[in-house]
Amino acid sequence: MAENVVQLEDISRVYEMGEEPLYALKKLTLSIEDGDYVAIMGTSGSGKSTLMNLIGCLDRATEGRYLLNQKDVFDLTDDELAEIRNSTIGFVFQQFNLLSSMTAIENVMLPLVYAGVDKEQRTLRAQFVLQQVGLDQRIYHRPNQLSGGQQQRVSIARAIVNKPRILLADEPTGALDSHTATEILELFDDLVEQGITVILVTHDGEVANRASRIVRMRDGQITSDSRIRSKKNA
């Protein structure tokens, strides 16, 4: 059996707002196996985004234990978390979040810049992943000269350029038409086949149905957790 790449134990995330503490996550426990394809579903305010941020090391839990790759990340400094985000995690956002002043390939190279990879290697690696996501033209165009689908491909390329173990996608098809959305989801299937753990946040049942496991959330807790098909590369 594959080891857990993400292991959350009794995680709470509390916001102090006024007098009443607000629980975005309440004693949540969740394990995700290496190489799995998980969809996290829930209405807005269910805590799914907070969960994403925690898994992605963008945020810290108020209580509980988070083991990422068997390693406790609770006591890590901000810079150490930044390093983990750089090397272990890739983010794909609904709004693509590309830097508008840079070309597609420059955007893809950016994580490698922060990782300290030299320019030649950066270029080779960026060209490779851009090809992998099906964008071998227009790579010297800026984001505003690309279509939504192309922009999302660039952002996926950026997410995987530094060979992460986990890909976190927050409503990756939310801003795309259904045809383009399907193409993007097919890309995720490819990535899962390559062994990357993909965690997808969505409120779209159709999108979630492409995953192997669906976790449903409400009020900061998990309400159901079902495996709908066996892990693809189990």
Partner: peptide, 16 residues
Amino acid sequence: TREIGIRKAIGAKFKD
């Protein structure tokens, strides 16, 4: 601000 958020998300450290 958003650009800074993106940079931090993909691994920029305080000093960067």
